[in-house]
Amino acid sequence: MSARVDVRKTYKLYIGGKFPRSESGRSYEVYAAPTGAAARRGSSSRPPTFLANAAQGSRKDARDAVVAARKAQPGWAAATAYNRGQVLYRVAEVMESRRAQLVQDVRNSEGVGAAQAEATVSAAIDRWVWYAGWSDKFTQVLGGLNPVAGPFFDISAPEATGVVAVLAPQASSLLGLVSVVAPVIVSGNTAVVLTSEERPLPAITLAECLATSDVPGGVVNIITGRTAEVTPWLASHRDVNAIDLTGAAGADGVDWGGLELAAADNLKRVRRPGGTGTEAVEPDFTATPDLSRLTAFLETKTVWHPKGR
């Protein structure tokens, strides 16, 4: 019997609930991370293993993604918190049923062993559920009644910022990705996510999970490609309300200070990358998070309501 021909994959982007090719028609090759001894030696005695072709997103893909995210935002924010929580929990269910594929993606992308990949996928699904649970709780924790010297009820409540551009972490391709995307969308924001440049496959599988769950199209848009090429367009885009620069750490040719400067043009909210000073360091995503990633993309609405008899 003859050997079976490989089914080589060319993945596409995820924009507005659809999987379009890059407007530019480009794609790039994704290789497996070196494993075990080879990774420790840092040598390249063997050629890297080809994994798949990923779409190489362009600035116009980013623009289209922002349009899709903008369109989806009012509806997503208007869904009840309870409903958003259910929808996000459903994503975790789909991730669980795709566990084997996610484990393989993490093994290939991060060059880790089976046991560690299993642990990473479990942590990622748990992280997603953890954030999903906050959907109908963060308003109580972060908002409240303000004491004022007058006959008013004065109530502050957090609301979604709008469209958030997210630079996903370069190294932690699944747990890190989930840890930056989930807190953005749980509060009613929509996201344009630029994946890890060298490790996009877990994000592509996550896109397939999102597409087959109940998340409305456009709530999460996933763009694979060169971080340094696409990021400046997202940072300067005047219809983007906030940007998370976490993935600037370890990305080739990305100057996050410049991105923060471009983002200032329309007063975007900016979440700086981890690390101190000008150095960007990818945080450790295995630790249990706090609410800072959620609160970074909220606006506070304060209502004065007259107190009558």
Partner: peptide, 10 residues
């Protein structure tokens, strides 16, 4: 004119 993508707010 500006080199940056614009939005409905403008």
């Amino acid at each position: 004119r500006t080199g940056a993508y614009s939005g409905a707010d403008y």
